[in-house]
Design a protein around this nucleic acid. Structure first.
Length: 578
RNA sequence: GGACCUGUGGUGCAGCUCGGAGUGCACGCCGCCCUGUCAAGGCGGAGGUCGCGGGUUCAAAUCCCGUCAGGUCCGCCA
């Protein structure tokens, strides 16, 4: 612990004191974590600051309550034989001959702050400033700060320059729903808050900053989840004169440095997998490689089946080790779950010592039964789940069930990183028959597939790549379009007319006419990365002041009604009557 | 927009199926006692719109409907 911690009010941090300091007369500042009074002659006071807890011995009665802010001046003394506390880092010493100065009184805390008690998250969020005093929140946010520092250092070491981009940007039609900000000076017009600095960083490439990065706040007005907040933080980067391999190298360096800073261990090389393999084997484009349970293909075994439920372009199966013990009601739940995910049904087979057990089993030929019983080397006690449908749907449904039935908790580790590469350019069609961009419309199609952009868009591969950690999508990137003709062609294939492209993205297309370098980039979510490092299931645990699932801030009460005057200034109509 | 779970003194829970007086446990809080505790201990005490509204019933924390809040998920998240 460094002496930089000394201030005019304190000499050291509580957690820094040890037998090496015996004899020192020191002042420490912090909160009263606990008191133990033994009548009018002796009391113990546990003082907490961000570094830990220190016991002060007070002769007489205490004039303080829990969470009072106090300054204690005392002498570092070895604890008497037999009274050391092994569970406390400072448990070999205590402060004696103490003066206690109250810096601020405190009402009783509405939520417990000690590490043994759990509080309802709504209460924690309402009193977040108290929740942040808890050891776990202190650790999470300090971990996050170390990650940020490591990321900045890694990018700096690789020659990237940090450039800030606007929060007030122009509305763009594609992609996530945007937060908009009404203009006071331009009646009826709006800024938007950036979903990401995507276009800005591409313009920085045109502007000659050939290696840009930013720890950027991004805002998306979409429904919240355990891993999604309205606003989140990305390490955003872009580089010119590079291939996707170069970009992956830059990102890998940053992520591995962050992992080392966070965990003390440097992970090995990051694995690589094609999008098609991820879908086929794991049923998702963000595979969790911590556990096996890969999907098996039974299409051939059921090619000539007479069972209507298995007459489909594809039959996929998943072995659930030990799953034969699942109750019938749990199996019914899984069937419902599969249907909710879009499957027509879900077949289940308990593998017993005497063969399969299932409502369907008497319909199967011996060959079909044998194929099911052999899925992924199934053994008695296992469960086999099967979905027959189009390939992608069958894979996705079983992939979701694989995670629900098999994924270890976030805190379990280990950390298994994987690059998912060779994404398709588009995934499916929208209601108007236009292809939907799998990544974003600035992604460069694979050069061999360029001429099919108009004729057969769904077959076009993209030069894009995702980074996945333990089943969480950390981020994605791509080689970008840097030619105006190609960009227009991509916009057209997405159903964006030349006129609309000109209005929304004219500044980008214009920029590309003046010598745009080939460039590529990436962005990944810092909140998610830190959450996994911290071993928590929810990114709220690594955000100082997060919002609830309905987008409310329970502490400030946001969102709130604004005054009539503010409304007028912003040219907004009257609020809807209550 | 939809599905499911949760809501009981300041906090965490039990009570809810099968209706019968706000019943219980732990923590915290207040008071008293206690000279080596450390999630101190002992004794005593205060603290409640059972989220809210409606319905059923002689009677509702408990059953029904609606609603609000928190959570997990689907849709959504280029």
């Amino acid at each position: 612990m460094s002496e930089f911690e000394a201030t005019s009010l304190r000499d050291v941090l509580c957690g820094a004191l040890s037998v090496a300091d015996v004899g020192r007369r020191v002042s420490v500042c912090g909160w009263v974590a606990r008191r133990r009074e033994h009548g009018e002659h002796l009391a113990f006071l546990d003082l907490r600051d961000r570094s830990g807890i220190l016991q002060a011995v007070v002769e007489g009665t205490l004039e303080v309550r829990n969470e009072y802010v106090v300054r204690v001046t005392g002498t570092v003394t070895p604890r008497p034989e037999g009274t050391r506390n092994e569970r406390l880092a400072t448990g070999a010493v205590e402060l004696t001959d103490c003066e206690v100065e109250v810096l601020a009184a405190a009402e009783p805390s509405p939520l417990p702050l000690d590490e043994h008690a759990e509080a309802d998250e709504a209460v924690r969020l309402r009193y977040r400033y108290l929740d942040l005093r808890r050891e776990q929140m202190q650790a999470n946010l300090r971990l996050r700060a170390r990650v940020n520092t490591a990321l900045r250092a890694a990018m700096d070491a690789q020659g990237f320059v940090e450039v800030e981009t606007p929060l007030l940007w122009a509305p763009t039609p594609e992609g996530a729903r945007e937060f908009v900000v009404p203009s006071r000076l331009h009646e009826g017009e709006f800024y938007s808050l950036p979903q990401s600095p995507q276009i800005a960083k591409q313009l920085l490439m045109v502007g000659g900053f050939d290696r840009y990065y930013q720890i950027a706040r991004c805002l998306r007005d979409e429904d919240l989840r355990a891993d999604r907040q309205f606003e989140f933080t990305q390490l955003d980067l872009e580089a010119s004169f590079v291939t996707q391999e170069d970009v992956r190298r830059f990102v890998s360096r940053a992520v591995l440095d962050a992992a080392q800073a966070a965990t003390g261990e440097r992970p090995g090389e990051i694995a690589e997998m094609t999008w098609a393999e991820a879908l086929d084997r794991y049923g998702t484009d963000k595979p969790d490689l911590r556990f096996e349970m890969t999907l098996c293909d039974l299409t051939a075994a059921f090619a000539t089946t007479g069972v209507r439920a298995f007459q489909a372009p594809c039959v996929k199966a998943l072995r659930v080790p030990g799953g034969a013990g699942l109750s019938r009601s749990r199996l019914d739940q899984l069937v419902e779950r599969a249907k909710a995910l879009g499957a027509k049904g879900l077949a289940w087979f308990r593998v017993g010592p005497d063969g399969l057990e299932s409502p369907l089993v008497k319909l199967l030929t011996p060959e079909e039964s044998a194929a099911v019983a052999d899925v992924d080397g199934a053994a008695p006690g296992d469960l086999v789940l099967a979905v027959a449908d189009a390939h992608a749907l069958a894979c996705r449904v079983l992939g979701a069930l694989r995670v629900e039935l098999g994924a270890p908790p976030v805190s379990a580790g280990p950390h298994r990183y994987v690059w998912v590469v060779d994404f398709p350019m588009f995934e499916g069609l929208d209601e108007e028959g236009h292809p939907v961009a799998a990544h974003h419309p600035f992604t460069m199609p694979h050069p061999d597939d360029l001429e099919r952009l108009g004729s057969d868009p769904l077959s076009v591969r993209a030069q894009s790549y995702d980074l996945v950690l333990n089943g969480w999508e950390l981020g994605s990137g791509s080689v970008r379009v840097h030619r105006p003709d190609v960009q227009r062609e991509v916009f057209r294939s997405l159903g964006i007319s030349d006129e609309e492209a000109e209005y929304r993205f004219g500044f980008l297309l214009g920029a590309f006419r003046y010598g745009a370098p080939p460039h590529a980039g990436f962005a990944f979510g810092v909140d998610r990365l830190v959450a996994i490092f911290a071993g928590v299931e929810n990114i709220r645990e690594v955000i100082a002041f997060p919002k609830t699932q309905s987008g409310a801030d329970l502490m400030t009460g946001a969102p709130k009604v604004i005054s009539e005057r503010q409304r007028r200034d912003l040219h907004l109509g009257a609020p809807r009557p209550a």
